[in-house]
């Protein structure tokens, strides 16, 4: 771990100025990902700017019903918030399915979506990785791909985004408030992350010095019937093989509206627009669920590898989507 300067500025604007003014500066939130990377040599900043304690740590309800979640709100507090549990159960469930009690007490709302991939090759500085070192090559191609992408990957990067929270946020039409060197702006959550294409070193559209200050959840009545289903190799304390965030509205056996996003399968929390289009107006049946999955997974491409690759994720995701939708419809019928 390389030595670095540490600053704990008084406010967000000062923090942004500090980081924006130094290309080798980083923000420190809950530390759960950055401190890990400092030890691994994946991150080697000159300057670490601590922001976890200066960002808003409250959840406020705005006029019109939007919930504004301060970027400093810890994952555990967000998951336990009664308004979130009642209006957006998918978000609470997603948070609670991630990491461990200790880590959720540390991780922040602003930091969570910016955590980096857990690709074993990205985390090992002795192996080539285009995300860590552009142009060095992707070791996951032909490597161990059990935890890698089947959607939207490129020959340059097979990594997946590891966050559970982000999958729920993507499904819920959340909006991200960003403070940058040139002031504040808001971007849709689904526009925050980017596919790897030829530049996998960039996880998001944020520029250096941009700081997430809050995430807004606009009112979404159908989200009261929403769920997060995470499938993993251990019953707890493990990243997703695949996950599904879904919300549906059903009237007289017909799905009138739906939100769906996938985790564990792409470089981004994958909003499943194609699946949603199939679902809207269709009868709540197994055939519909399958058609929705097929539509979304039409372009899915598995990766092979010495451990059998990850082709299993495609049927697994199809089955998990069906199970999640079936469960929500069943709940709705009660």
């Amino acid at each position: 771990m390389k030595p670095f300067e540490y600053r704990s500025p008084a406010d967000a604007a000062a923090a942004v100025r500090s980081v924006a003014g130094n290309p080798a500066a980083v923000f420190l939130g809950g530390g759960t990902n950055l401190v890990d990377h400092l030890k691994l040599g994946v991150a080697a900043p000159d300057l670490v700017v601590h922001v976890a304690d200066l960002l808003p740590a409250g959840i406020e309800e705005l006029d019109g019903g939007t919930l504004r979640i301060g970027a400093g709100v810890r994952n555990s507090d967000l998951a336990a918030d009664r308004r979130v549990r009642e209006r957006f159960p998918v978000l609470s469930q997603a948070l609670l399915s991630g990491a461990s009690g200790q880590l959720r007490n540390m991780a922040t709302t602003g930091g969570n979506p910016l955590q980096r991939t857990r690709c074993v090759y990205f985390q090992d500085v002795t192996t080539p990785c285009n995300k860590r070192q552009p142009g060095s090559g992707c070791s996951a191609v032909g490597g161990w791909t059990r935890h890698h992408a089947v959607l939207g990957a490129s020959e340059h990067c097979l990594a997946v985004h590891p966050s559970d929270m982000a999958v729920a946020m993507a499904a819920l039409d959340a909006r991200v408030r960003v403070l940058g060197p040139d002031g504040e702006r808001t971007i849709p959550f689904t526009g925050l992350h980017r596919l790897p294409a030829g530049t996998p070193e960039r996880d998001t559209v944020l520029e250096h010095g941009d700081l997430i200050t809050a995430i807004d959840l606009p009112p979404l009545p159908l989200a009261r019937r929403s769920a997060y289903r995470k499938v993993r190799d251990r019953a707890s304390y493990a990243f997703a093989l695949v996950s599904v965030a879904a919300a549906v509205e059903v009237r007289d056996g017909v799905i009138t509206d739906a939100r769906v996003a996938f985790g564990g399968v792409a470089h981004v929390p994958w909003r499943a627009h194609r699946a949603e289009r199939v679902l809207r107006g269709a009868p709540a049946t197994e055939e519909t669920y399958r058609a929705a999955a097929d539509a979304e997974l039409a372009d899915a491409r598995p990766a092979d590898g010495p451990d059998g690759g990850n082709a299993f994720k495609i049927p697994l995701l199809r089955r998990t989507l069906a199970a999640t939708l079936r469960g929500l419809v069943r709940e709705d019928a009660r």
Partner: peptide, 18 residues
């Protein structure tokens, strides 16, 4: 999981070796 290309166990921590 030993990656035969490199000869090392790639899931060499407690997050990946469950």
């Amino acid at each position: 999981v030993l990656d035969p290309r490199t000869g090392h166990v790639v899931n060499h921590d407690l997050a990946d070796y469950h």
